[in-house]
Amino acid sequence: TETYETTDETEARKIAEELKRRGLTFRIERHGTTIRIESD
Rank of each mutant, 00 (worst) to 15 (best):
I15D: 00
T10D: 15
T25S: 13
A12W: 04
E5I: 14
I15N: 01
R27L: 07
E2K: 11
I15W: 08
K14N: 10
I15V: 05
R27A: 04
A12F: 05
E29W: 13
E29T: 15
T33Q: 12
E17G: 08
I37C: 01
T33P: 09
L24D: 03
T7K: 08
I37T: 01
T25D: 09
E9H: 06
E2W: 15
E38A: 08
E38L: 15
E18C: 13
R21T: 06
S39N: 03
K20F: 09
D8N: 09
D40K: 11
A16Q: 11
I15E: 01
T34A: 05
I35T: 02
F26C: 07
R36S: 03
E9V: 07
T6P: 02
L24Q: 06
K20T: 14
S39W: 15
T1K: 14
H31W: 11
K14V: 09
R13Y: 12
T3F: 14
G32M: 03
E29G: 05
E5P: 01
T34C: 11
H31L: 11
G23S: 02
E9G: 04
T34H: 07
K20A: 12
D8P: 00
I37A: 00
T33V: 10
T33K: 12
E18V: 06
D40N: 13
T33A: 13
A16V: 15
T6F: 07
A16F: 07
A16S: 08
L24R: 11
R36E: 01
L24N: 04
L24E: 05
T1Y: 13
E18W: 15
F26P: 08
T7Y: 06
T3M: 12
T7F: 06
G23P: 00
D8R: 03
I35D: 01
L24Y: 09
T6L: 07
I37H: 00
T10S: 12
L24S: 04
E38R: 11
I28S: 03
I28W: 08
R22P: 01
D40E: 12
L24W: 07
H31T: 09
I28K: 02
T7G: 06
A16P: 00
D40M: 15
T1F: 14
T10Y: 10
Y4M: 02
T3Q: 07
E29R: 08
H31E: 09
G23H: 04
T1A: 11
T3W: 15
R30P: 02
D40L: 15
T10V: 13
K20D: 06
G32D: 04
R21Y: 05
T33E: 11
I15T: 02
T10Q: 13
E9T: 05
R22S: 04
T7A: 06
R27P: 02
A16L: 14
T6S: 03
T1S: 11
G32E: 05
R36N: 02
G32H: 04
A12K: 01
I35V: 04
E11F: 07
D40T: 15
T25Y: 10
R21G: 07
K20W: 11
D40G: 12
F26Q: 02
T34K: 08
G23W: 02
L19V: 01
H31A: 07
E17K: 10
R13E: 12
E11T: 09
S39V: 15
R22A: 05
E29K: 09
E5R: 04
E29M: 12
G32W: 02
F26W: 04
E17H: 08
T6M: 04
L19F: 09
E2F: 15
G23V: 01
E2T: 13
E9P: 14
E2Q: 12
E5L: 11
T25M: 09
E17P: 00
I28M: 06
K14M: 12
T25K: 14
I37G: 00
R30V: 13
Y4D: 01
G23A: 02
G23N: 05
R30N: 06
T25W: 11
Y4Q: 01
R36I: 12
L19M: 06
T3G: 04
D40R: 11
E18L: 08
D8I: 04
I28C: 12
G32C: 04
A12C: 11
G23C: 12
T1M: 10
T25R: 14
